[in-house]
């Protein structure tokens, strides 16, 4: 764990509000992104990312540092979202410029490495399409893809978080990737033959 994180975690454990706020600042983007990728809309992502941070705050005194702090908080985030998805048992709808449920008009930013305008537009369209494909997968597939490709967790870590065997992780991930590939292919084929998957 980076020294800065370590100090902030220690101070937060002792009830230092500012230290915890600093931790939130460091990790809010990643936590929010995971929530958004899993839920597919900003209103849910904002609510659940906040819930995740509240859980993190409450569980902080029990954090012993067995895993890295980032792995620990991403784990909590995934669990909070999975619980919500289980509760709903329905597919979330995608909305990239929705208003928050509390009535606030939030502004959203998408970080990128500042490509040219045309590439930006193209990239943005592709990203929206990928998110739509992700949303159309079942919860298990979407979760495992996010854990592996976005959180970049090892198979062992995924198995631990999901409470399943390594074999299950391998096979589920394989099926999830296959399913995503098929969805993306379907989306891309009608657009243009040059926009085939292989770049």
């Amino acid at each position: 764990m980076p020294l800065e994180d370590q100090l902030l975690v220690e101070r937060s454990k002792k009830g230092d509000r500012e230290a915890f706020e600093h931790l939130v600042q460091l990790y809010e983007q990643k936590v929010y992104t995971i929530a958004y990728r899993l839920m597919g809309n900003h209103a849910d992502a904002a609510d659940l990312a906040q819930d995740a941070f509240i859980k993190i705050y409450q569980a902080l005194p029990n954090f012993r540092g067995d895993s890295s702090f980032s792995t620990w908080i991403y784990h909590i985030t995934v669990n909070v979202c999975r619980d919500e998805l289980r509760k709903r048992q329905r597919r979330p709808t995608v909305s990239l410029d929705d208003n928050n449920s509390d009535g606030n008009n939030y502004t959203y930013e998408i970080r990128s490495t500042a490509p040219g305008p045309e590439e930006m537009l193209d990239r943005s369209e592709t990203q929206v399409m990928i998110q739509q494909c992700l949303d159309s997968l079942n919860d298990d597939y979407r979760t495992i893809l996010i854990m592996r490709e976005i959180q970049e967790l090892a198979y062992e870590e995924i198995a631990e978080i999901l409470g399943c065997s390594l074999g299950t992780v391998k096979s589920r991930l394989s099926r999830a990737r296959q399913a995503l590939k098929e969805k993306i292919s379907k989306q891309m084929e009608p657009l243009s033959p040059c926009k085939r998957l292989a770049k």
Partner: peptide, 15 residues
């Protein structure tokens, strides 16, 4: 493509 998805900043007022 999945790995290239960008990080998303939380909405203003989130923190």
């Amino acid at each position: 493509m999945l790995k290239e998805l960008p990080l998303i900043a939380p909405p203003t007022g989130f923190r």
